[in-house]
Design a protein around this nucleic acid. Structure first.
Lengths: 195, 195, 195, 195
DNA sequence: AATGAATGAGGATTCATTCAT
DNA sequence: GATGAATGAATCCTCATTCAT
């Protein structure tokens, strides 16, 4: 069964399996064996490629964050006006691929991991700062000095609405979440720029 | 060494130790022995009183939620106007006792626990519904039909700003969080009631 | 089955089992489970008392060294003349309890352990220095300045004859080993003191 | 990349790497991968050539023993008198190539291996018997019937002094060891032949 | 000939839980 | 009521060995 050039394929399979497994269990308490099995390989191989459970988790986190970042970047690239930019960010945050029960649960667990893992904290910090700066950049022309405050407000609302889905008994509804955020944006914009 | 009437004291000590331990570790991966030791007793006794680790966690969660609920209730009881009520809820959500690194981390972990524990999910559901209904009740007179939407918006913002603190490298700043939420409230109220 | 005050008993049983197991296997490649089983307890308990495999090995080594030291001390306490002292040391080195296939094999393995374990090296260093200084002390009155050289010679012979038994197909013969060493001693003493 | 006629080169590289690795680690707990890597090849190839880890160890041992034997043989071939023969054996035992920290550690580990491996024991037995018979042969003309006893004495001293170097914190000093053994020889010879 | 991908058994270690005292 | 001794299942990780390429 040994093949050559399998490394990227194996790694991708493991990352995907990790997210799925965490999402399904709702916990980081998944075993390497479970992950490996879902990815169609032995636990030994998982260790071979990643060196340990921690590294597997971090890789999964990196992947998740990268997917999100790519989604935001793609949406932003098509935005012409500041208003569009804000909409792009919000919509990407609740996009189909990002806004699924499993992924949300994994994301939540990454927040927890960040409490005890230096590296996880670092990764999540990058996400948070990027979201913040993307928002500020888009808001500056519209609300001037209030941009920082509004960005924090919106970032909080995005994260919070996202988080609250992890428990939602009802089906997740991205449109509803998007509408909530955009409503707050509209009200702020209506105030015009500060200074 | 056996004493009578110790049960409530022991239980309280264990609950407190559990929150502290989870908060410090940033994880639910704390051992019963650690918790018991911090509470000044043997692990066996912890089991004796709670029956198992899960029950200890649930008790800690119940306690945390009850504290928060009491804080909200207390604040609400002094509020006269709808506006006051909203302010009371927001302020309670970021109150001193509730808005500390340790407690926030524990809270975050309870969200995670809720993914895999029916009972934890139930408890957290109560919290979410209560927050939502408290907000709706206060908002109804002010924004009419929009109350539900605004309540969800605000609940999301509260949870999100709260959550974002768990990673914040900077010191937690309740006033700033409160200001963000109240600003959104003000803008909504300025629209007047719908219908 | 839990009892109180078992710790010293358990520890002693584990130490004894460790030496027996190493002796029988001829290797440090024995599992904690094997040791624990031979000592009549679970592997978990072995860890509980010693904290890890390394610590178990070190304890076994310490015990072995202590036994030897006690044997030497006892023999020395009854020696009146320098000659007696030398005889006591040599005889203790090949005493019944010390000169058995199992114990010799364990001892040999401790030498190996000392190559990679700082602590084991430390322990063995103590043994070597003590043997050396005991010999020098006894030899000084008899051979004067040559004491150091003769001590090293004898120490080497003792260790070497001891070591060679670990492979001996023939039955180990302490008397023969003792005779070899004492013969070398006699020849040196016949030279009289230097300077 | 496959080449022909590589076998002897590969085998030699592996043997050398094995001794170096064991010497460095101070343990037989080295992996085949480590050895293969040091020898500049894959672990698979190491298995291909030797069939298994045990065989690699045995080959390394055989090589080490052969080197020593060659050294002794070479030295003996230039010895004319029985005294010279003894000196040759002793000097070879502490020759530069043989008396290095790494090699000594490997040698010690081979002693351990001999406890659990029939074949290793066999190899070491050959070494021991050869040393013994070489000594007896050289001693017979000088000490007559005492040859056997003296040979055992000297063999013990050689092995013991060699062994003690493996722990020596001080630099290894072959001259000193040689002097110790030769001193014992001189004293015995001074007694003249028995019977 | 050579690689390194892949497996899977084995072992140290941890920990919730039980229970004799 | 209280302890902590004791168990054993569970998990991470390592590594010899095999084998497709």
């Amino acid at each position: 069964m040994p093949k050559v050039g399998m490394e990227p394929i194996r790694r991708a399979a493991l990352v995907k399996a990790t997210i799925a497994e965490i999402g399904e269990a709702g916990t980081l308490d998944v075993t390497v064996s479970q992950i490996a099995k879902r990815a169609g390989m032995s636990s030994g191989l998982a260790h071979h490629y990643f060196g340990g459970k921690d590294q597997i988790f971090l890789a999964a986190m990196r992947h998740t964050l990268a997917l999100y970042a790519a989604e935001v970047r793609g949406a932003l690239s098509m935005a012409c006006t500041p208003q569009d930019r804000i909409g792009a960010i919000v919509r990407a945050s609740f996009s189909h691929s990002h806004f699924q029960r499993d992924v949300i649960a994994a994301w939540l667990n990454f927040y927890v991991l960040a409490q005890s893992s230096q590296q996880a904290r670092h990764l999540l910090g990058i996400y948070q700062r990027r979201l913040r700066s993307n928002l500020i950049f888009a808001l500056r022309p519209l609300v001037g000095l209030r941009a920082v405050d509004v960005a924090e407000q919106l970032a909080g609302m995005i994260d919070g609405l996202y988080l609250r889905q992890s428990l939602g008994q009802s089906l997740v509804d991205p449109e509803r979440a998007i509408r909530h955020v955009m409503r707050a944006v509209a009200l702020e914009l209506a105030q015009g720029p500060s200074r």
